[in-house]
Design a protein around this nucleic acid. Structure first.
Lengths: 390, 390
DNA sequence: CCGCTTGGTAAAGCTGCAAAACAAACGTCC
DNA sequence: GGACGTTTGTTTTGCAGCTTTACCAAGCGG
């Protein structure tokens, strides 16, 4: 996760039409969360009276923030209209500026997908490069070109980046970092939200994945690099320098005789170092090609592979032990190319059990989509509050 | 900080008289925070109109929650009455059940002290013991005996303990842990609030000390034991098992060849281990008697002492590096018998600078009172919300 | 005494909500 | 097909909590 920081500043958001009553805000929020609902359902869920809800609907309809999509028939009584978020609420663009591919997705604020796409990078980019900037620009251009009136206004663009992100707001002023903005010119007047990619994955786990409904948990990504995203009290912990979860900075090696060196741990736990150790130690002339191969063989019972998987699981467990010692999240989701492999899990659990207090550990089920889902959620959430938290 | 956990449950709180308007709540809160204020000041600070404030005052006066303590004279115009919290709001008892002494303090909710006292323990109690329970009971009995009608009702009892505290609420049902409640029987009907002593010190730093006004920081206590209390977004991070900040559980020793052992770090960084290393390594036959002596000699320039102080500062810096890697608080306050010694600070800063992102580090100025101040604040805050968050 | 300023209260009005009453739509039973 | 019960949606009315406006009270200097 080592990368330079992005310093953030605010950008003028689009002018807002009006202020809403708190009930209208609640209705809008609820519709975003559940997708569709009838008025009686909304009354029930939000504890509002029918007249109040009626007023809220009138308010929201005036700007096309809600629309009717059908009728619900109880087995008796009048039919109820089914409402959802309308075109007036607009849409967002979410971009996962990953190490090997750029994914993008255009969606309404309630998550309905309008357009998705992928750009491959010419080679694995361990660090940000001009090519990423270009592809991000392509993704935005493609989205804008495909835009039709039915989508409503573009409310926010979110970009998940493999870098630290700093600043109070998640918005960035254009032109601050050439690697990001060298070829990418964000459309003016549209809020741009940057977020660290691991934090995005954590947000996705929180909203759609293994950590749904939890107030506190950590998501630990283990692959080529290591990183962590933490949610405490429902809020992402970002850190003063945007460096929360940069586990590569844990003091390592550290003992009575070893002096920790900066950023050593990432190079020790990263997949490259793992495979180097595996190859150096392999008993015959057919070592695993890559970490996937190693874990496959371990799953098939290969003793040499199991030794290294166990060893790696223990090291991951020690990462979690450090996390528990500091914040004791109680629940940890393992993700990333290596971390999400189930073969690793029992060894991780064993080591955490040996070193730490009771902590539930599960592997992620969201796969490679996690980051894109998370930045999408973030962009939608930003758009939502810009619209109704007047 | 290694100690058994306290499992918490709720206790019936005293019946509440009435519900307040939000303006009355705001006025009450404000008076608690600032101590004294005139009506115009409150209008200004809270953005309320004079009629609204008048209504709020009528509400609060009816239960003696506020009282007039004087008149304020501007250089022209009518005099304004000065208000503060009244007897009706009641008082709290705060107890620091420390390792060597038990301190207690009775105070109004706004912090005005009514009574303080100290009981020495017969010997340093590394773990909780029956004697602590007895002294806590003595402290409460003494407070109750001294109580006069002027103090108003007893609203809460807070106890800071050198143990993990778990559970949603800070209240504990009587009779759950014999070491705490073997000889201590809390008065029934009064909420009892338990909190870890390091978290209390952090709360004190947040309200009265070096971290005043900060939303995020960590307080690290270094002495016989090590522990950390963290505030993120103004809220104390307690952890699922109440184990957040148990730095003794950081993986140590950890390197390519060293296997971490449970709770090793506390015994390595604790003052006893430090002095053992100092004595083993001392060049002549006059080693420092204790850590205070060591740091005094270092302050006077003794090269042998400086070597060990520097070494210790580096180790403390590595603790902070671990904390920064996980949550990146941006600001750290050093406290405790060893941690608060200024001689240590430059070495800590140097090591953190070498290993981590920019992090401000200061030493605590609250001294031994920090824990008592913190638990007092917590008890008052609990009483406050019980009174007005109806 | 009068002007001037500031503290405090009483009366009227506004906002956001709910309860009650009313109106409309739908299925069912005779 | 029409009466009836049920559910949805709207109109009316009322209330809580606040602000604005207006007024009275208290202090100071001339």
């Amino acid at each position: 996760m080592k990368a330079r920081a992005l310093s953030l500043a605010s950008l003028a958001t689009s002018a807002l039409p009006a202020s809403f009553t708190s009930s209208a805000r609640a209705v809008f929020k609820r519709l975003l969360a559940v997708g569709q609902a009838t008025r009686p359902q909304l009354c029930q869920d939000l504890g509002l009276s029918r007249p109040t809800l009626s007023a809220a609907m009138t308010e929201l309809s005036r700007l096309d923030y809600v629309e009717v999509v059908g009728q619900a028939q109880g087995h008796t009584g009048r039919t109820a209209s089914i409402y959802r978020i309308g075109k007036g609420a607009g849409h967002t663009i979410a971009i996962d500026a990953g190490s090997t591919v750029i994914r993008y997705r255009v969606a309404y604020l309630d998550g309905r997908v309008l357009l998705t796409g992928t750009y491959a990078l010419s080679s694995g980019q361990r660090h940000m490069s001009a090519e990423i900037s270009r592809k991000v620009d392509d993704a935005v251009a493609q989205s804008l070109a495909s835009c039709v009136p039915d989508w409503g206004p573009l409310r926010a663009i979110g970009v998940a980046v493999p870098a630290r992100v700093t600043g109070q707001s998640r918005m960035v002023a254009p032109g601050q970092e050439t690697w990001m903005f060298g070829a990418f010119t964000p459309p003016s007047g549209v809020p741009l939200i940057l977020e660290n990619n691991v934090n995005c994955a954590a947000i996705a786990e929180h909203n759609y994945g293994a950590a749904a409904g939890r107030r506190d948990f950590s998501f630990i990504q283990v692959g080529l690099k290591i990183g962590m995203g933490t949610v405490l009290g429902g809020e992402v912990v970002r850190g003063q320098n945007g460096a929360a979860g940069e586990l590569g900075h844990l003091p390592f090696p550290w003992s009575a005789s070893d002096v920790p060196q900066p950023e050593t741990l990432e190079d020790y736990i990263g997949a490259d170092a793992l495979m180097a150790r595996v190859r150096a130690d392999w008993p015959d002339h057919d070592p695993p090609r890559d970490s996937i191969d190693l874990f496959r063989r371990a799953g098939e019972g290969d003793p040499a592979a199991l030794v290294h998987v166990k060893r790696h699981g223990q090291d991951v467990g020690r990462l979690i032990a450090a996390c528990v010692a500091v914040i004791d999240p109680g629940f940890v989701v393992l993700g990333g190319g290596v971390g999400s492999l189930p073969v690793l899990l029992p060894y991780v659990r064993e080591e955490v059990g040996r070193l730490s207090y009771a902590t539930e550990i599960e592997t992620s089920t969201l796969g490679a989509d996690a980051t894109l889902l998370g930045i999408g959620k973030l962009a939608a959430a930003h758009a939502q509050s810009a619209l109704i938290d007047a």
